[in-house]
Nucleic acid binder design. Sequence first.
DNA 1: TCCCTTTGTGGAACGGGTTCCACAGCCCGG
DNA 2: CCGGGCTGTGGAACCCGTTCCACAAAGGGA
Lengths: 333, 333
Amino acid sequence: MRKPTIQDVARQAGVGVGTVSRVLNNHVAVKGATRESVLKAISDLEYTPNPHARRIAGGKSYTISVLLPVLTTEFYVRLLDGLESAFQEARYDVAIFPLLDRSRLERYLGSHTLAYQADGLVMATYNLTQMFHERRLRTQQPTVLVDAYADNVDSSFMDNVAGGRLAGEYAAKLPGQLYAVWVETELDQLFTTRVFEDRRSGFMSEVQAAGRSVRAEYTSSFDSLAARNTAATLLDDAQAAGLPCTVFASADMLAGALLDEVRLRGLRIGQDVRVIGFDDQPWAAERGLTTLHQPVESMGYEAAQLLLSRLNGYKGPPRARRFEPRLIVRGSA
Amino acid sequence: MRKPTIQDVARQAGVGVGTVSRVLNNHVAVKGATRESVLKAISDLEYTPNPHARRIAGGKSYTISVLLPVLTTEFYVRLLDGLESAFQEARYDVAIFPLLDRSRLERYLGSHTLAYQADGLVMATYNLTQMFHERRLRTQQPTVLVDAYADNVDSSFMDNVAGGRLAGEYAAKLPGQLYAVWVETELDQLFTTRVFEDRRSGFMSEVQAAGRSVRAEYTSSFDSLAARNTAATLLDDAQAAGLPCTVFASADMLAGALLDEVRLRGLRIGQDVRVIGFDDQPWAAERGLTTLHQPVESMGYEAAQLLLSRLNGYKGPPRARRFEPRLIVRGSA
DNA sequence: TCCCTTTGTGGAACGGGTTCCACAGCCCGG
DNA sequence: CCGGGCTGTGGAACCCGTTCCACAAAGGGA
């Protein structure tokens, strides 16, 4: 049996095709009773609109490209959930582009692939808009940054400076020497993020304002081995200088490595060594990690709304949606 | 200025629209001279066909979904290169779906997202077809496995058993105790792969046939810290038992951890400790790693061809394209 | 040379939506 | 009670390719 079309629905409901289309797109000018009968016909026939017909008639692709770093963290799963729920409401499809490497990025955007055909672009964490200005990417779609910001495009992000400050404020009240460990930004200039820089500056300003000294020279890449090595070095120094101490780990991943290493040395978490993380990953609650929580879904949802309003013709200056982090105090600090 | 359509091209070239369409789709029945004039008109007008119109007219989505594990290894970049080059030739778009987690997979395939609309499915490394049979996924698109195999669907893969055998055969001739380290398959039952199992069975059979004993109880997950820990444990044992020794690492990632740990201990690679990897990642040449090379692009390209032939109506039984690994001998063993 | 195939080509019909115009019915003010 | 405007709705035109049918021209066999 043929897939039902909008014509079939119109016939079944005893209305015109225009009316069915109006119901599908939530146009206001459809009377309650008419709308009901259309909806009934739709469900009776199990009708689903043909997206390609829609695209060609509407002259748009109703597709959004999302460019993501390749990381399996819960963060991006939740971010996508937020993005997709908003785009789904507006009947947009989402195409995901994992940023595997530089050449692949250029291929994504430079040729006639899905990303190129999309009506809009979402960039997560990495701000690649500079490439547009350098004319290395020729895309001109409306763009929104999420988990990143810039003053020339719309953005939806958490205030990482504020997060750093919350951590700093809290840490400043704890006894013992203060330490901090940072994530190094990626090697490739292209894929950089200011997230960790911001966390750092917030933390440092607050701690210094409180007159506390910090040993903040520890860094690690986003890799479990590197994190563990850094944790070990830091704890060597801390043990040499004398416990207790407090460590701010600018990502839960680093905090996790610290917790492991602390346990390995038979030290007591929350007493000998206090650890403050950042991200509130799913395991953080389980392991009692004091950390900063981000409203990730909301960030995604709002990013989508910003982009959708551009697609609906909004022409104003770039807007920024700033979200506030929340310090979750658990046992680790 | 409006984007040129096929009508504009036809007018410019002084031919009918049907002819233009035939040229675009490489139908044979177009004379050389006519074809030339059409091609000239296309390039003069900078015409690019509207993919959505094509989809609706053709009744297909001309889109393939590729389901990938989320790993930044060179392997998947190359695999995608192979897949995309074949699909591009056939004028198919590729949509990538990183397998972030289970719920996301079900959402991808269960609802009316891009993956669902696609004409075909490529699954890399993970064989998720069992979910179709369990009715947990309702997709019925033609499917091809790449870097994985099963007897109920088309597949394109390297013979990992043969790779293991090559490694075993080579290792069996080297002096000292033999060791082997394996990658554990993922925890989630859904995302499993037989790749490492195969490498293991190939290696073991060859080594045992040569009458050599192996200490093959070492395993690690695909994580740098875990790999390093395993490497350390293995080398502790090896040093206790006496050098020289030879280690087969069933993934270059593990081999890399071994090389690091060997250097750390001041041992000589290729003399005290010989290491054989698997994958031939880009850094392997640089670090002189003896390893097994896979024709990754070809695997991807052939997988695409298998799928395309299904899309063109091929109805035969499942086919398997098996590729042979090649042992690259460098300094490490 | 004539008729019958091939071969190559033009163009209408078609796919399934959206949009816009026209019109019916209603409400309201004068 | 009538005309003007507003609201809600039907349906034709349109979006832009692919496909198929019809037909002209060229080639081949008798």
